[in-house]
């Protein structure tokens, strides 16, 4: 299959998928929380665009609805909530640069290659076009997980989690034309609830240990032992 045989819209989809991957990298490397939230919002916009394209080129009309939902939720509502959260927690000046950025980026690139390698045998040969996008989606998921591993800031970890969800959604949309609407609504609702819960938890954690650095939560176990 070569690029020349693809219709314009699918080419555009490839470009957008590649840009989703790029936003994942930006998220991973971003030191400032607010900028990271913006990157996440852009990722949401891109995923929504991909969904809209799939919707317009297929008969799954409900995909338009999911596109709108994605846009509203991932590109606007959740970033806005996170934004407010960060401001309230007075973390908007907080910088947390990666300690070994080159190493992290190399790991992420390795993940991209790995996910390509992993996806190739799994997805059927007829789906060449989507297979590549599935590979990118898997890379987005894995990078989101990597971000949760290396970040010590709880808000950044939430961002990693959300971008994992973006990757899954991208895979679902591009490979199978989207999940059934009910499932999608359910997932969207879950994400929203998770977001609200995270918000509440952050305040609680912050009040009890005066920091959102997850590395400092290691000590919780020790406290329990002391009391018992």
């Amino acid at each position: 299959m070569s690029l020349e045989q693809l219709p314009m819209l699918q080419q555009l989809m490839l470009v957008l998928a590649a840009m989703v991957l790029f936003t994942s990298f930006v998220l991973l490397e971003q030191a400032r929380l607010l900028a990271a939230i913006h990157a996440f919002a852009w990722q949401g916009v891109l995923v929504a665009l991909v969904t809209a394209i799939v919707a317009s080129s297929s008969e799954h009309l409900h995909l338009f609805f999911s596109a709108a939902l994605t846009l509203g939720l991932k590109a606007l509502l959740i970033p806005w909530m996170l934004h407010r959260l960060v401001r309230r927690l007075e973390l908007d000046r907080h910088r947390e640069p990666l300690r070994r950025p080159a190493l992290v980026i190399m790991a992420a690139l390795a993940l991209v290659i790995f996910s390509y390698w992993a996806v190739v045998p799994v997805v059927q040969q007829e789906l060449l076009f989507t297979r590549n996008i599935v590979a990118v989606s898997l890379a987005v998921v894995l990078i989101g997980l990597l971000m949760m591993v290396i970040r010590t800031q709880a808000v950044a970890q939430v961002l990693g989690f959300m971008s994992m969800e973006n990757g899954l959604f991208l895979a679902a949309v591009s490979a199978t034309g989207g999940m059934p609407l009910v499932v999608e609504l359910g997932v969207a609702f879950d994400v929203l609830v998770a977001m609200v819960l995270f918000g509440v938890f952050f305040f609680q954690i912050r009040e009890s240990i005066d920091s959102l650095d997850v590395d400092r939560m290691n000590r919780l176990t020790e406290h329990v032992e002391e009391k018992s």
Partner: peptide, 10 residues
């Protein structure tokens, strides 16, 4: 192989 294709440019 796609993996080799990506390793060589790196």
């Amino acid at each position: 192989s796609g993996v080799l294709r990506s390793i060589v440019p790196i």
